[in-house]
């Protein structure tokens, strides 16, 4: 029989064994969030496709038709959607996970399971939306007869998704932990996300940056790398692998900082939430 102790301070661990033990909860939380999100909408899960589609049309109208922003030689809708898909995983995932602990406070106060499952499932929910939205992508590619390097799709695209998810996990779990303690993040986050949308080359080409300082920052930015990877599938442009390597390292550091912070503070969530 397993013997264990409940004490004030247990030794720090990432709790991987427990996450594996409770792995089904990832599925149930994600499934619940997806289900509840679209249950009351007449169009249901179709919104997962419509939302990025509307965003794409909106930004095409503003950035391409009105402002004539350069799109690296590919049709602007293709350019925009390849950025927006990655961006939506990041922004929705961040939003969901940052609020997830507070939204699930009633469960946290009444039952124990590895708390990390909550912000992680919140990000997986954003990933499910992404999978549906991917169909627009395919649709647009067909519409524009865009030539695609098939080999790149199966390497670059998964890599860019992985990079985005790792970054979002890191920042999301960090914000989730802080949001329990300081609800201020709930109000700050929308501004942060809006700022990041314009600070990242989602809607415009990364070539627009001419300032060397900004270029260096962009190299360390994992989201910019992910967008670059996702986009190069269509533009055929060379990927700045040095940038991707730096971006990935940053993502992994963020990932561990986020999970470390979360694990350090999680035992007091029930007292604070």
């Amino acid at each position: 029989m397993t013997e264990y102790e409940i004490k004030a301070k247990n030794k720090f661990s990432f709790g991987l064994d427990e996450l594996i033990q409770y792995r089904e909860l990832f599925y149930f939380f994600t499934w619940r969030d997806v289900k509840v999100k679209y249950k009351q909408a007449a169009l249901g899960i179709l919104w997962a496709i419509l939302q990025p589609l509307i965003m794409m049309l909106m930004f095409t109208l503003i950035f391409s038709k009105a402002l004539n922003v350069s799109s690296d030689g590919i049709p602007y809708p293709v350019f925009a959607i390849s950025g927006l898909l990655i961006w939506n995983i990041f922004s929705n995932g961040l939003m969901n996970s940052a609020n997830s602990m507070v939204n699930n406070a009633n469960i946290i106060k009444k039952i124990y399971f590895p708390r990390l499952i909550i912000p992680m499932s919140a990000i997986l929910t954003a990933l499910v939306d992404f999978l549906f939205a991917l169909s627009i992508y395919v649709g647009i590619l067909i519409y524009y007869h865009q030539g695609v390097d098939v080999a790149k799709i199966f390497i670059y695209l998964p890599l860019s998704i992985l990079l985005t998810v790792i970054t979002t996990f890191g920042l999301g779990t960090f914000l989730a932990a802080f949001n329990v303690k300081y609800r201020d993040f709930q109000y700050l986050l929308p501004f942060m996300i809006q700022f990041l949308l314009f600070a990242n080359p989602v809607l415009y080409s990364a070539k627009a940056f001419t300032n060397p300082v900004i270029n260096t920052i962009m190299k360390a930015n994992p989201i910019a790398s992910a967008i670059q990877l996702c986009r190069s599938v269509f533009t055929g442009q060379e990927v700045d692998w040095q940038g991707v390597a730096i971006g990935s390292s940053v993502a992994i550091v963020l990932f561990f900082i986020g999970i470390y912070t979360f694990r350090k503070t999680e035992s007091y969530f029930a007292d604070l939430a």
């Binding site: 013997e3 264990y4 102790e5 409940i6 004490k7 004030a8 039952i111 124990y112 035992s267 029930a270």
Partner: peptide, 21 residues
């Protein structure tokens, strides 16, 4: 504390079985 929802300030509980609360 028994259900691991909140940690004790000091002292401990030794459990020799799975707890469901």
């Amino acid at each position: 504390i028994l259900s691991k929802i909140t940690p004790p300030s000091s002292g401990k509980i030794v459990c020799r079985g799975r707890v469901a609360s």
